[in-house]
Every structure is written in structure tokens, then in C-alpha cells.
Simulated assay, not measured.
Amino acid sequence: MLKPLEDQVIVITGASSGIGLATARKAAARGAKLVLAARNEHALKVLVNEIKNKGGSAVWGRADVGREEDVNHIVETAIREFGRFDTWVNNAGISIFGEAMDVSIEDMKRMYDTNFWDVVYGTRVAVRHYKERCVPGAIINIGSLFGDRGTVIQSTYASAKFALHGWTESIRMELEKENAPVSITLVHPGKIDTPYNEHAHSYLDKQPAHYMSMIYPPEAVAEAILFAAEHPKRDMYVGSQAKLVAVFGRLAPRVMDKIMERTMYRTQHSDRPSKSKADSALYQPGYGLHERGTNKGWIRKTSWYVKMSKHPLTSAALAAGAGASLWALAKRRGS
């Protein structure tokens, strides 16, 4: 049994922009106390002041979550300010756009620090904290549709997310076997309208972007995260896009290979020149306080798949009812 959100202390990494920022604002509005971490100190200070001015409770801690000692400092901040934490959200992430053979090993290792090792560090400190307190707590890891299915151009990012997914599934089974008081959820976002592409390290001539595709708002991911903070869930897919890519990729991998090869090269960059590598957020903080990015495509207002996942029995009943109605209508027309 996880606590109601208003009784929780929630740690969010990568809180200065995008999904982390949307989640922090949404959680604060629900009454949760927050420990917000990122590399952008200025953005964190502004965000904490914003939350406090609205009557919320939050503290910030500058941290490069690819460094284990910085993750330990986040824990120290949470204990010092609130005496505990109840949910840990491993959200921080960065991407590299470029052909696999072009990306330097140094850049790959740096990205793995942020996208994979930060999750390992965060998971370990959270599990230890929940076990010591003997009180149930949640760990929510933010994966990707590219953690379920590889892609071109973002091969380094996809491989790191595959590692994150494998880590999450493995540690979940180990903790379940020992009846540890930990709920572990893997969130699978589809393409999300955040500054993800602006922060990315690019080897391309054209600026990385979600282009000519279905794009979901960061608030939809925040909704999935906060639901998992209160209700133990194994997986939360944000958008039918993410679920379809995962399922179809397993059922027809060669067909999906061809689809990805034909579509992903032209839909992962825009028509403007790429920002320089020096301006990326791989080795330095990216700009903060922006939930949305500069993507162009079919921008959705929400994710109905998330809403259905929150009420699976009701959704199944509605789907069965709709199917029965269509069957009856077809039968009547045929008679």
C-alpha cells in the first residue's frame, strides 16, 4: 500500500525541464512535498520559489546524477529537510543523434552515465531507504519506446534505454522474491513534446526534432508517474504509439526494421541547421524551465492510453461493450 500523494515526499531527478518539470508542478499541486534535482541550479531555485509561492513545499539540490556521490547528496537533502522520501523518480536523461559508427566512445560513456548509471544509483539508494524504514515506497524509472525497440540515428540512446529496461525488470523480480517493500514501475513514453531534442548532442547536419509524427504532452507522462506513485504498477505506456511499437516490434521484427529504416531518418530532424555539440546538454546543464520543445507534428492534448491504464477493468468493459455493439450492428446489416 503506497501513501496518497498529499502525504508523500517525492524525489524527482531531471526536474528543471520537460517531463521532470511537468511532474514537479503537477505533484506540488496535489500536495506532495518535493526534492528536486538537476544540474541547472538557477532553474531549480526558480521552480522551488514558484512552488512555495503557491503554497507548496519543495527543496532543491544541484546534482549530476551520473555521479554516485551526487545521488547520495540528494538522499541527504531529502533526509535533512523531510526525514524521508516515499517515491523516487529516475527521470534525468539526454540523447545523442548520430550514426552509431560516428559517435565517439567518450560521448557514449557520458550518455550512459546519465541515462543508465543514474538509474542504478537511484534505485540502490531508494531500495536501501525503504528497507531500513520497513515502509513501502515506489521507484519509478522513465524508459522509452526506444528501450523496447531499437532505432536508427539514436542508437546510443536506445541501447542505454534497453539497459535501463533490463535493469528495472531484473531488480523488480529480485525484490519481489524477497518480499521487499518496494513498488517498481517502468514508464514507457512515446514521442514527447519536451526540449529533449534541443538538449541533445548532435552529429547531424540538421537539428534533431520529433517531426511529422504523433507527439504527446509531457503532462501525460507526469500523469502516469503520479498514478504509479500511489498505485503499484509494473508498466505504464504513454500513448498507444509506445505500446504498438513494442508489441509489433516483437511480433514482426523484420517488418518493423524496414518501417524504422524508411521513416526514422526523415522524422528525427527538422529543416534547420543543427546546434553545435558545444551547445548540447551532454556535458553541461541545458536551459531550464521549459516543459515543451520545438517539435512539429501531430501534438496530442493527452494520452488516452494512460487514462485507460489507470482504469483497466472499466476500459476492458467499455471495449467489450463497443465490440458487442459493432458485432450486433454488423449482424443486423447482414440479415
Rank of each mutant, 00 (worst) to 15 (best):
D148N: 14
D148E: 13
D148S: 13
D148G: 14
R149D: 05
R149C: 09
R149W: 03
R149M: 10
G150E: 08
G150F: 03
T151S: 15
T151N: 06
T151G: 07
Q154R: 10
Q154Y: 09
Q154I: 14
S155Q: 11
S155G: 14
S155H: 10
S155D: 11
T156A: 14
T156F: 00
Y157C: 04
Y157W: 00
Y157F: 05
Y157E: 02
A158D: 05
A158K: 01
A158Q: 04
S159A: 15
S159R: 04
A160T: 09
A160N: 06
A160G: 11
A160I: 08
A160F: 05
A160K: 02
K161C: 05
F162Q: 02
F162W: 12
L164G: 06
L164S: 06
L164H: 10
L164I: 09
H165A: 14
H165N: 10
H165F: 11
G166N: 07
W167S: 05
W167A: 09
W167E: 09
W167C: 07
W167D: 03
T168L: 10
E169I: 13
E169R: 15
E169G: 06
E169V: 15
E169H: 13
S170K: 01
I171W: 02
I171E: 08
I171F: 00
I171N: 08
I171V: 15
M173P: 06
M173E: 15
E174L: 05
E174Q: 15
E174G: 11
E174T: 05
L175Y: 10
L175V: 00
L175F: 11
E176G: 04
K177L: 14
K177P: 01
K177Q: 13
K177W: 01
K177Y: 04
E178M: 14
E178T: 14
E178F: 00
E178R: 10
